[in-house]
Amino acid sequence: MNCFMFPGQPLMVSQAFPDDPDFDAISELTRERAFLDLSALSWTKGTPTDSVKLQVYGVAMSLWHARKLGREKVRPAIVAGHSMGIYPALALCGCVSEEDILELTYRAGSCMARMGEKREYALGCVTGLTLEPLMAIAESNGVHLANYNTSRHFLLSGEKGDIANAAAEALENGAFTANTFPCDAPLHTPLMEEVATPLREIFSGYRYAEPLIPIMNHIDQDVLSASEIPDFLIRELCEPVYWEQTYRALHAAGATRFFEVGAGDSLKKYNRWIQHEMA
């Protein structure tokens, strides 16, 4: 049983651009609806932030990858998204069109970027520590656990200075790595409620069809219905991603082959770690 997993926002542009008609088509849609020239990675209108650029780039690459797998006759029986991976997952499952999801990504990203005009935010990737000590470090530094990827791979989210302090403390307490990355907004934390109202207006402005393929959500591992999608898109920005639970639930649901549909291979590597612990 095939599962398509859609990764969240990449932290950097990490792959060469393909030379095929599907990429050309996705590039054209991206230019028209999200104002990003993918090949040059430059905006055709306005100057949104680098985080918005990475979000649009990530969704575009997932849409291209999904088309590529479709051409290879690889079909999923179930789908899941990590973080903003829910956006291209919705397009694959027929809930919204590719062009609408590119536009939604651009609009939502631009909305979230307004938070970054008031404060500086960052993400902190921490590997090696278990949950309990990292939770204590997060609490003592006023930051949030944003991704529970495996038993030893977590993402922190919060204000830039606090994230830097938490990362330093994590290293002092035995973390193997603790890397920080700037971002526009404190993703996957309750702090995102600050922009919930304008985000809700954006998300409720699209019509969502029932998924043609079951989509397992990454918060409580339920299958999404069309009517739940707008609320889930808000909720998933305000709550953590529980990837380990999601992978285990997908596995329990019968998924045996996992395809990472997008830029990078982090989800495959998280799955490898989880499988190692399940063995």
Binding site: T127, H153, F176, T177, N179, W273
Partner: peptide, 24 residues
Amino acid sequence: LDSIDALQLVVAMEKDFGAVVPDA
């Protein structure tokens, strides 16, 4: 390889060879 791979190698080195890599 990346930091996710590195942690996987740390665990494997300890298991297979008894060599502990304490930090990054």
